[in-house]
Design a protein around this nucleic acid. Structure first.
Lengths: 133, 133, 133, 133
DNA sequence: GTGGTCTAGACCACT
DNA sequence: GTGGTCTAGACCACG
């Protein structure tokens, strides 16, 4: 039976962002939000590689990095689990911290575009609360 | 006499973003905001390379891409200048269009973090209008 | 095993046309004619550079431009291949479109030479259908 | 009074073809066709430079090359004249010879596009005899 | 293995 | 003076 958590992940092949890093960041965010719970098992490398149509080594690289950063734990014979000591889960500060780099990027670009704060906020609001997405 | 426009540009050597692309995006934004005006001449390749302490070929690559995308025009034997047909200059739609990819990235990440619209907007507002930054 | 497609390419070092652009135009035409098929992989940069006796960066520059123009797609870690969405392949309109600049050049020159249409066509016909060439 | 021959020349700034070479080839063709007659005077460097909005040195370079190739003659105190010994004028072989490089280019490109002789000739015919030019 | 980036330096073409 | 092209070679990122 396929792991239902697989549906949480998606990668864009044509992106400038490397596939393994897309995965690393997605898992990190999903753990921080509590969507992935401590102790929960991750899909196997082969399973996820098949579902995303990428090279298994790419998945393996992402898992290794996540293990190094303490987000995942390797259970021999079982696979990868979300780390137990995730004291980060659903902490609002942690989640905002993860969003900060992109917020900074947004502000830098808005400055060079000479878009004022109100315009940026209005645009973001309409995209967040508008039709879909 | 050095071109005063040189001060507008800055690159981060250690970034994952290639230097030439940092330049391409900066110039694109500065033209869209009207900070760089149509007909204005760009610093020479060698001059900018010296100021940013990078290889002239790196600047040249950025200029070539900007010519391809229609932001710059090449005047043979003279140098590069901001393209004349700049229907882009200070048009608000154009500026928001350039900001959209980063806005989309922000929204995607906020969703995975399960941060609601109000929280994201509040955080952005405080960063935009707050004391520092 | 060397990629057999290598034989399709040839460059003239002494030409006024830069090597990288000779390659760009050749690949564009070979894709339009269907000689290179969508999904087919291109020779690696190093392989083609060796075969044509040019610097790998020259090949790389051509590939980058072809990616920008949508003729090639980059498969990271794998190589370059002919773009899939090749709505161009063997379409007669596309092929004539690629020939148009040279046709226009021919007509402009014939006009200045005061060579009438029949003379130009006769000359072209003999060169196309004659013994040599 | 401005030299009426000025109207015969035109240069495209954005072309890949250098301006001075556009001029050289145009003069060569106009002499071969007899549009410019032996003994006829060319516009002065400054006059032509002003009319075409290019650097006088560019015109001067073109004139020098045309003098070297025997198409123009320099008359001290008067300016440049079309060379007297133009035994080439209106000779059909000479005119076809000047058209040959472009004809060869056309054939090479048509081959790579796998456009057959009839298609190329049909297209050229419609462009030569069709609506306008 | 793949392509991408950058450097250092030479040489060329154009104005 | 300007930018463009190419080389040789190093190093990196990705799969």
């Amino acid at each position: 039976m396929p792991d239902p958590a697989i549906q949480l992940f998606s990668v864009t092949a044509g992106s400038t962002e490397p596939i393994y890093r897309q995965l690393v960041e997605q898992v990190t965010r999903l753990v921080a939000s509590g969507t992935l719970q401590p102790g929960q098992s991750m899909p196997s490398v082969r399973e996820l590689a098949g579902a995303l149509a990428v090279n298994p080594m790419t998945i393996s690289k992402a898992y290794s990095l996540l293990e190094t950063s303490g987000v995942l734990e390797r259970q021999r014979g079982i696979g990868m689990l979300i780390a137990q000591h995730s004291n980060n889960t659903r902490k609002i500060d942690r989640r905002i911290e993860l969003l900060t780099p992109t917020l900074n990027k947004l502000i830098f670009e808005a400055n060079q575009l000479e878009l004022d704060a109100d315009t940026v906020i209005a645009q973001l609001t309409s995209m967040l609360k508008g039709p879909a997405q």
